[in-house]
């Protein structure tokens, strides 16, 4: 009801409610979900709420906020996400999937969300990754991690303000010798299998 009073709905009959105003700062940050996948793969999904963030008035502002929200620190340079992978953008209202539970707004401030998520997926070149917020950025970033190989572990989060740097986050890095070892073992197994099949195949021919 409180929300209803503060908004001006001009939709004609049957219209879907558009991005509504927020009464609070339930999403006063860009929620940045980091999923660590096997073999050093990194999935970063950054969500802007233009229905519940007083700093993001509309969709175009949300898209602008997502264009370069945080950078990957590689040695001494800050690499924009766009240089790591192509972005995939989706619109939805599933806030619970894209923010840790402790950061969901209070139920007394239950507010509709208008969410845009930009996702980047790349393979890390280093065993640890560090993100950094360039100075002067308006939008805080809530960086939270989910280990896809161990979903029982509670998500960890950190809020980054402009100029802040994340802790070093270890990815599921496979050392080069392990990769070679895996490759060699796999190759041997495949060759053995091929040999076995060929021998049996030949034998069956002879029998026939």
């Amino acid at each position: 009801m409180r929300i209803a009073r503060s908004i001006l709905i001009l939709a004609a009959g049957g219209a879907v409610l558009a991005p509504l105003c927020a009464l609070a700062h339930g999403a006063e940050f860009l929620s940045t979900k980091l999923t660590l996948l096997p073999d050093a793969e990194v999935l970063l999904e950054i969500t802007a709420d233009y229905g519940g963030n007083p700093l993001i008035a509309d969709e175009s502002t949300a898209r602008e906020a997502l264009s370069d929200p945080v950078r990957l620190k590689r040695h001494e340079t800050l690499v924009p996400l766009a240089e790591l992978a192509a972005v995939n953008i989706t619109q939805h209202d599933n806030w619970a999937e894209f923010a840790p539970a402790s950061y969901l707004p209070s139920d007394t401030e239950a507010q509709p969300h208008a969410l845009i998520t930009a996702a980047w997926r790349w393979r890390s070149e280093t065993p640890e990754i560090v993100f950094e917020m360039p100075k002067g950025k308006l939008h805080d970033v809530l960086l939270w991690t989910r280990d896809q190989t161990n979903l029982d572990v509670s998500p960890k989060w950190m809020l980054l303000l402009a100029g802040d740097r994340s802790k070093a986050i270890p990815v599921h890095w496979t050392p080069w010798w392990q990769r070679w070892q895996t490759l060699m073992v796999s190759s041997v197994l495949i060759l053995t299998l091929c040999y076995y099949v060929s021998q049996n195949f030949t034998l069956r021919h002879r029998t026939l």
Binding site: S6, I7, L8, I9, L10, A11, A12, G13, G14, A15, V16, L17, A18, P19, L20, C21, A22, L23, G51, P54
Partner: peptide, 13 residues
């Protein structure tokens, strides 16, 4: 035009 799906949000907070 106030056709289906059109909505406006704003006002004071």
């Amino acid at each position: 035009k106030k056709e289906k799906g059109v909505a406006a949000a704003g006002g004071l907070k």
